[in-house]
Structure formats: structure tokens, C-alpha cells
Design a protein around this nucleic acid. Structure first.
Lengths: 195, 195
DNA sequence: GTCCTCATGTAACGGGTTACATGATTCT
DNA sequence: AGAATCATGTAACCCGTTACATGAGGAC
């Protein structure tokens, strides 16, 4: 087994839906599945050529005038097999590595203001993602029943649930910090006040 | 700037709390912050030596009989500066890449049984993590007020909230799939039954 | 006039994982 | 007897990012 590229399977999966160029695949990741996946042009193009050599995909060049040629890839039988074999395999445990959490963990070495700034930036960022997902959901709801619809909805649902949870958490943190700050002020400003 | 190792800052952060060996640091990540961070021995040892060269840490070798020598690292002033500079920097947006979501997205190419299997495996895994976190929370609650306590609690809280959300989501998915399956059976088993 | 979209590519680089080696001691 | 803990290290390797190059056509 060793380790093999997840990108490879993402590409195969997308080619399962329709033939596509590298550019198309990039767009697809950005527009449809950006809430749980991303690809860079860099290894997209490199991978596609490698996969061609391995016979997982076939290619056909579409000449265009004025623009560079489009290289449209299709999944082969071999590619389909590889994809399905992967699909059946249990999903690898996601490795988690959150820079924000790391900073927060060492939060007592940071000024309250900067800390709050980090959390608020995170919050607003999550909020903006949520809005995009909500719009996507509306669109999906108005779409008519089709093959992959349920699964698109379920993955979207994940994005929404997690986004909401992240915002709830950020709010909790901000509250806790505000409270702590408040207490500190009471203590330092009115140290021996009547009790 | 370019890109520099996040591991580096995790290490510096941990050394901020107390001098430690590579082995100690690994243990710390596993026992205390595993819910949002992880390190492998591989680059831990490589990084520590590089950081020594860069003057971010200093080292002292503790001879031991029977066991290999312990190399205990301490953070230097330069290291502290680098760490604080990083702390103040806004946290990079987490890149998301979920293999499970990817499989689910292409779920209509998978048998319902396998699909359910994936989701249930995910669910039970998340549940086991939750239990660990809950135990950790109980421990933290009984600890007396100290410097980093609030922040440990806040990061733990994140793990709990997210874990619960993931489980809720998995349940939703399993329900949705069961329902769909049920409908399909009705249709295929009693195709023209009275209505 | 400048920015965005379309479209493909390459080279550098490095961050991190995996797998291996070594070996005494202590727990089950 | 065997597994786990302690403890450090190295070498392979590759996955993926970033940055660059090229260039036409259309939008604003």
C-alpha cells in the first residue's frame, strides 16, 4: 500500500461524473466541493499526466483557437476499478492540526486584545463560509431529484453543522475571555473594596 | 516568509512550559493536545536539531545508564521571540480535506451497506474520542486555578463541541440513508400494490 | 488600461510520514 | 514469553504548495 495520493482519487471521482480537463477539475473543486476538498493546479496537472501513464485515465486534445488546447481526460475501466476499490476501503482517520487552537492553547502568553482578534477573525471567516453554504443549500433544495443529490446534500449538511458548531464555540470563547477580563479588572481596580 | 513549519512553533510552545526532550514533546502532544495536534518522531528529532543550529533552543544531555541519553531542550530568548511573533500573527485558514466526505460525496457508487459501514465506523470512532475528552474535562474541572487552565479548557471545549456535532451529523446521515432505502424497497417490492 | 477568465505547464522546495535500527528495563 | 515503555536517530520518499511563464479574449 504505502501511501498514495488522495488527490488521485478525488480526480478519479470527478472524472466518474464526466470527462474533464485539469482546469475543469479545479473549478469543480472550488465550486462544488470546496467545503471539504481542494486541489492546486500544481499537482493536478502533474498527477493527470502520471495517471495517464498508469492507464487510469485516457486523454483527448481539443484544439482551440486563441486559447491553449484543452486536454480532456476520461476515466478508464482500470481507473474505475481503482476508484471503487478505494471507495470501499474504510476512510483514513483525519489528522487534525489546528493552528488557531495551538495559538489559543498558549493564549496566556498573548494579550487579551490579540487573542480576541484571532477569535473574531475566525468567527467572521466561518460566518462568511456559512453564508455561502446556506446559499448552496437553497439551490440544492430547489433542484429536482437526481443521482448524486442526496449525497451532495449530506456533505453540505456537514459543512453547515460544523460551521455552526465552530461559531458557537468561538462565541463561548469570547464570552469566557470577556468574563475573565472583567474579573481581573474588578480585582485590580478595587483590590480591597468592601466585602 | 515563504512557508515554515508549524511543528516548529508547536515545539517552541511546549518548551515554553518546561524544558523537554523530543520524547517528552511527543508524549505531551499525545496526552494533552492530541485533540488538535500531533507530531511524529521523524521530524521532531530532525527539527529539534535544526532549531538548535538556529539558536532557537539550547540543549543539555542527561546521561542515563541502560537507556540512551536524554537530550533535554530549553527555549532560548531568540526562540521565545520567534514564538511570540508567530503567536501574534493571524492563524492561517485551516485547509480542509476529508476523505470520508469525499467517499460520501460519491456515495451513489457504493452499496448502502458499505456506505453505512463507513458512517458507523466514523461514528464509533468519534464516540470513543468524545469519551476520552469527557474524562479529560472532568480532570480539568477538578484542577485548581492556574495559568494555562482556562485555555486548556477552551481547546477541550472545542473538541467536545465538534465531536458532538460530528456525531449528530453522522446520525442524520444514517437516518437519511435508512429512509431512502426504505422507500426504494417499497417501490421495488410492491410496485403496483393498491394505493 | 487593467483585470478576470480560460488553459496548461514546470521547477523548486520542503514539510512531514513511514519504516527501519538499536537496546535495556519493566510490566503482564 | 512477549509486550510496552523509554529514547534517539536516519533515510527514503513523496505529496502538495508556491511561484513562475505564456498568451488570447472579453469585461468594466
Amino acid at each position: 500500500m504505502a501511501r498514495d495520493s488522495k488527490s488521485k482519487y478525488a480526480i478519479l471521482g470527478i472524472l466518474t461524473l464526466a470527462p474533464a480537463s485539469g482546469y475543469d477539475i479545479k473549478k469543480y473543486t472550488e465550486e462544488i466541493i470546496s467545503h471539504f476538498w481542494h486541489e492546486s493546479f500544481g499537482n493536478l496537472y502533474t498527477l493527470l499526466r502520471r495517471m495517464l501513464e498508469q492507464g487510469l485515465v485516457s486523454s483527448r486534445t481539443e484544439p482551440q483557437s486563441g486559447k491553449p488546447n484543452r486536454i480532456v481526460y476520461s476515466i478508464t475501466e482500470k481507473g474505475r476499478h481503482a476508484f471503487h476499490a478505494w471507495l470501499e476501503q474504510p476512510a483514513a482517520h483525519e489528522i487534525l492540526r489546528s493552528e488557531l487552537l495551538l495559538k489559543l492553547f498558549f493564549g496566556n502568553q498573548l494579550t487579551p486584545d490579540l487573542l480576541r482578534g484571532h477569535l473574531e477573525a475566525f468567527r467572521t471567516w466561518q460566518l462568511s463560509i456559512l453564508e455561502i453554504l446556506q446559499a448552496a443549500q437553497k439551490e440544492l433544495d430547489s433542484e429536482q431529484e437526481n443521482a448524486g443529490l442526496l449525497f451532495r446534500k449530506l456533505t453540505l449538511r456537514r459543512g453547515l453543522i460544523m460551521g455552526e458548531a465552530r461559531i458557537r464555540w468561538a462565541d463561548e470563547c469570547l464570552e469566557a475571555l470577556a468574563e475573565e477580563n472583567h474579573q481581573n479588572h474588578e480585582v485590580t481596580n478595587v483590590p480591597t473594596a468592601g466585602r
